[in-house]
Design a protein around this nucleic acid. Structure first.
Lengths: 248, 248
DNA sequence: CGTTTCGATATGTATATACATAATCGTCAC
DNA sequence: GTGACGATTATGTATATACATATCGAAACG
């Protein structure tokens, strides 16, 4: 307990053994040391290398397999996989958060609200099969004095009955829904769009200006909940999606 | 073995026990039966319910925790978490695949190729700190007779030396790189853009038309590899991102 | 009354073990 | 040669067990 502290092992945090195996192997794969197709050591070899039981190694390798980094074949071993499709994680934040991240004051405004029996168009947007009551909303989100985004939303009242009595004067429908309805699936469509007259007026931009449009459909346990279309005013507004191979 | 087959249990595939626990619980959470904040049964209770060992239950719950559906607290139990940020998975396919999925013949064309010492702009795009050789490429991707996408790419030759001698006449740089360089991280930026003269000419569209632009930066084990900007011609071109809570 | 200590409890991690399952290899009979 | 078949091998799944660790709550104590 004197000078032996000079060991150059960087302890950092005390990683659990199975996490150490996991990060060891993913690093070797991602650095290219183990190229795609390479057979990684058998469980019993790793058992020896890390001096642990097969269960621990197995848990780590199973996780790597689930993350898509390796492929496991019985009797043959485990092999480094080539990433097939570039999948990136797109974080879609609440607009208030986005605006406040820019350091600007956020303001919300409800433009219109209609309760109606779903039209054919409504049903197409919500992917509803049967007719039923829906709530149609139109809102604006401001960053400082300027309109930041325009929101057109449909809520399936059969799935969210409490929404029928909500005016959405003070609270935006997004956060309101998130707080109430557990959502099990969502689909986003992203595209470029030339502002039409209505949108241009609402966002105080020129007609024909390119806008980023994000449409989201949300389900809660098989039931369509809501469809929303956000149109962003700022031409330079960007969405960011990252891919970093799943670690733990 | 006669009429007892009328049991309304849908067997489907023989799920492993721990997968059954997993999907059971996630369904109860996503359907709202167990609301956010609800304490789910203790491991020893689930052990009794499913008549299995604690290890099996533990494995399933740990997975749910990693997927972010529940939060585990020692001594207190496991609780349903409120989804905090909407994260969706964006699949970014190779353009050839995208075009062929539309049922159209795909064609690739290299427009320009320059090898040069990196400019300040190049370094900014690649997030390079030091100067070094880069390869700048400009390409077009066709769907049938019409231009589908325009590609502007920079390759960091310090990281991918073999690219220096490649002409990219027949093969697009995307698949070429994928086949050679293991990438460990990628960042995508998505935005709407009004076509300038150069892009409009390359894509055979009108100047000022709204285009979807996807920029991707790729790293391989800490080294910047490539930066690419795709500009899509078709105004109705959409990216799709899905979120479905991680199952297995 | 406040603080400290300690036991109970639920999860976290690892082991040794067992048997199932899939795939490959070698052998042997035809 | 070749086709069938059993042995071998690596992974897949589950169990019982053990001990570590964080934390809550209640009893003990100043």
């Amino acid at each position: 307990m004197s000078m032996i502290e000079t060991m150059d092992v960087d302890v950092g945090e005390p990683l659990s053994l199975h996490q150490r195996i996991l990060s060891d192997i993913s690093e070797r794969i991602l650095s290219g040391a183990w190229a795609p197709g390479h057979r990684i050591p058998f469980e019993h070899e790793l058992t020896a290398e890390y001096k642990c039981s097969r269960m621990t190694v197995n848990k780590a390798l199973s996780q790597l397999a689930k993350a898509g980094l390796i492929e496991r074949r019985r009797r043959s071993g485990s092999f480094v996989r080539r990433p097939q499709s570039q999948a990136a994680v797109l974080e879609i934040h609440d607009i208030r958060i986005e605006v406040e991240a820019l350091g600007l004051p956020y303001r919300y405004e409800r433009v219109a609200r209609h309760k109606r029996r779903s039209s054919a168009e409504d049903r197409a947007l919500l992917e509803l099969t049967a007719a039923g009551p829906v709530l149609a909303l139109e809102c604006r989100h401001f960053a400082g004095k300027r309109p930041f985004a325009h929101e057109q939303r449909l809520i399936n009242l059969a799935a969210v009955t409490e929404a029928a009595d909500e005016e959405f004067h003070a609270m935006a429908p997004g956060p309101w829904l998130i707080a109430r309805v557990p959502w099990s699936a969502a689909e986003h469509r992203i595209r470029a769009f030339a502002a039409d007259k209505h949108i241009a007026a609402a966002l105080d931009i020129e007609a024909g200006a390119p806008c980023l449009v994000v449409e989201r459909r949300t389900w809660s346990a098989e039931h369509p909940v809501t469809h929303v279309r956000f149109t962003y005013a700022d031409e330079s507004h960007t969405l960011v999606a990252r891919f970093t191979p799943s670690q733990s």
